[in-house]
Design a protein around this nucleic acid. Sequence first.
RNA 1: UGGGGUGUGGCCAAGUGGACUAAGGCAGCGGACUUUGAAUCCGCCAUUCGGAGGUUCGAAUCCUCCCACCCCAGCCA
Length: 436
Amino acid sequence: MDDLSADEIREYRGTLTKPGKNSPHRDRAVAENLDLFERMKNGEFPDGSRVLRAKIDMASPNINFRDPVMYRILHAEHPRTGDKWRIYPMYDWAHGQSDSIEGITHSICTLEFENNRPLYNWFLDQLGVYHPKQIEFARLNLTHTIMSKRKLLRLVKERHVNGWDDPRMPTLRGLRRRGYTAAAIRKFADMIGVAKANSMVDLGMLEYAIREDLNACAPRAMGVLRPLKITIENYPEGMVEEFEVPTHPQDKENREMRVVPFSREIFVEQSDFMEDAPGKFRRLTLGREVRLLGAYYVTCTDVVKDDDGNVVELRCEYDPESRGGQSPDGRKVKGTIHWVSAQHAVQAEVRLYDVLFTDENPEADGDFIENLNPNSLEVIENAMLEPGLAEARPGDHVQFMRQGYFVVDSVDSKPGKPVFNQTVSLRDSWKKMQQK
RNA sequence: UGGGGUGUGGCCAAGUGGACUAAGGCAGCGGACUUUGAAUCCGCCAUUCGGAGGUUCGAAUCCUCCCACCCCAGCCA
């Protein structure tokens, strides 16, 4: 039993390079120790007034051996024992015993506990109980995020994110709400391995794992995130056609089809039109023919702008011969874009995500909060989706073709009114070309 | 500067004396294919294993010295 204050204990402990010195209470009689300990347990003493320490070696080069504290007084309500015990054990003292009681063979933990292993072993040896083996491995670090529970807690408490299950959080709950499947997380774990070297895994690996999994199973659909209206001037007014398109075009086994309506006015992606388009741009520009996925070839004939010069609408003409997306003359059309019939589109909220932190290593210097990416969440209120998507249920995965994988949010979706969270975008080699 | 760890390509990571002129994956770069600029496919991408010596017929693997980085001075875990 030691009556030294916390400050005194610190002083007596010495430093990394200087040995500590014995506490004046180190050689108290056993009977007195027993009595004091019992009374400490029963709550006779205030918090911090004394502690139980293991008598080991105040000069040990391993600071953990300089008479480590085993129990301290805490007048706290324990969830199981209530107020029966007013003392609580320290990690090093309790850890080995709980592992031993549970019959654990290998107690896996992170690198920072390497210094504690000798003490883990020492306590178990003194006790003479079943002795599990502690093995330390490096923790997982991912670029552009943090993994420390304490730091994650701060993100939650300071409301930088919307809770532990915020889709931007690297927590299991966050990942699941983001649309990460268990299989993808396991695949990722297999990919990165386990080792003792401190390392930082590129976020790209995680994204690869989820893309691979979702590519195989996610049904495809068309969704226009930032709509640009097109009027197909030579398409009969009031006419509606229904096209059958494959839901799993990449899957040779699964021939499932779905029906999407087509009409004179459609929405396409704003980014699929460019006024002064370079030759390599395979999408819409004045006079260039593109294929509307699964529907018709269409050529832009006119650009409508508002007073500020913003493009607000496109006029096009379609080739009736190209029904289904191919023409009898066999001419090639390089670009294929997704679309949604304006009168049939369902409006939905879509949330796009970017990395939580702009720096690869947010903890590198300064306060990691400073590195928060202000644009990690973008909410699109009025995305235009193909009508079938209205029936999507929470947890459903879908690929919005040419854009990315999305999952129906399990918290904010309402029946018939799904909210989509972006799981991960598709790879985008066009964007890469542009950046060069 | 006491003690404990780790160093293999941009990133992760096998390999612990001979089949290693170093596996695999991610990223990257070429190209093929394509009704998703996706996916798929094909090719390229460390003569060198933190550095320097040494042992050996033979070293990423053994020895010596050195260097870099991480962890430990909570009555936190």
